[in-house]
């Protein structure tokens, strides 16, 4: 479904050029879920942004369903196949647009017909009843907003969802609801996910395989079972696993 080969992403010009992603390659088969983990600045979100065309300074090969993409321009077909859900549902919804408007605009842009019925279906699919249709973002909780953001992403009936920390702005109880929703949608619709998260247990729960990133490079690729068992090959991945597992009072970083 998604194939990324030798991806490099950079910002700025020499001598101030920053190489945010360097020779990253991975692929995600149809219907699978792939995780990208690492510290902030490791380049995991940058990869998603390069795929969707939010960044144009990249080189390498990105293929979605065997179609290569180039530069910043994406075809209509691309946006039909690939959608993104962002981290902060407080920032990614227009404060003065009602849920109805957010969804109808997206459906319209995707050239869909029968918009009225589709909005009702989308709201149903993400577990918000039709009662939410004419609400504004400030009348919704964080979890409800993220559901609207997911509904918006689903409007195009995509096959690949790019999830950038979809639950890290939410409470743990709400996180559980959203993760369950995402898992259900993947099963029902055969979706493929690429999920960026700093939370290893969330990635282990959601993903089949994952890549550990550091300073723009993939240091290790592993499956969820190895992550759960703490079987990491590289020293950095092992350190990350230990640091996430616990705050140890005897820890001596002084």
């Amino acid at each position: 479904m998604l194939r990324v080969e030798n991806l490099n992403v950079w910002f700025g010009f020499p001598p101030d050029r920053v190489d945010a992603v360097q020779s990253v390659s991975f692929q995600v088969p149809q219907g699978q879920s792939y995780g990208l983990v690492g510290e902030s600045g490791s380049g995991k979100s940058t990869i998603l942004r390069a795929i969707t065309g939010l960044i144009d300074t990249w080189s390498g090969d990105i293929r979605v369903a065997d179609q290569a993409v180039a530069g910043r321009k994406r075809s209509r077909a691309f946006h039909k196949a690939v959608q993104m859900v962002f981290q902060d549902p407080y920032a990614s919804l227009h404060p003065r647009h009602s849920v109805d408007r957010v969804l109808s605009e997206t459906l319209h842009l995707q050239g869909m017909h029968d918009i009225d019925r589709r909005i009702a279906q989308l709201l149903d699919a993400v577990g918000l009843g039709s009662g939410f249709r004419f609400r504004y973002p400030h009348q919704l909780s964080g979890g409800q907003r993220q559901r609207v953001a997911i509904a918006r992403a689903l409007a195009a009936e995509p096959r690949l969802l790019l999830l950038d920390e979809p639950t890290s702005a939410l409470d743990v109880s709400v996180q559980a609801e959203i993760l369950n929703l995402l898992a259900d949608l993947r099963r029902e619709r055969g979706l493929t996910y690429v999920m960026v998260s700093h939370d290893l247990s969330v990635v282990a729960h959601m993903c089949d395989r994952l890549a550990v990133m550091r300073q723009g490079r993939i240091v290790e690729e592993m499956d969820a079972a190895s992550l759960r068992a703490g079987r990491a090959q590289s020293e950095y991945a092992r350190e990350l696993l230990t640091a996430s597992a616990s705050y140890d009072r005897g820890w001596s970083g002084a």
């Binding site: 109880s173 969330v202 729960h205 992550l227």
Partner: peptide, 20 residues
């Protein structure tokens, strides 16, 4: 208890997360 159960855990794989 509900809060604790809703957390995904590395050492305890589950199919669905418990919802509060």
């Amino acid at each position: 208890q509900g809060l604790l159960n809703s957390l995904p855990r590395l050492d305890r794989p589950v199919d669905r997360l418990a919802v509060l």
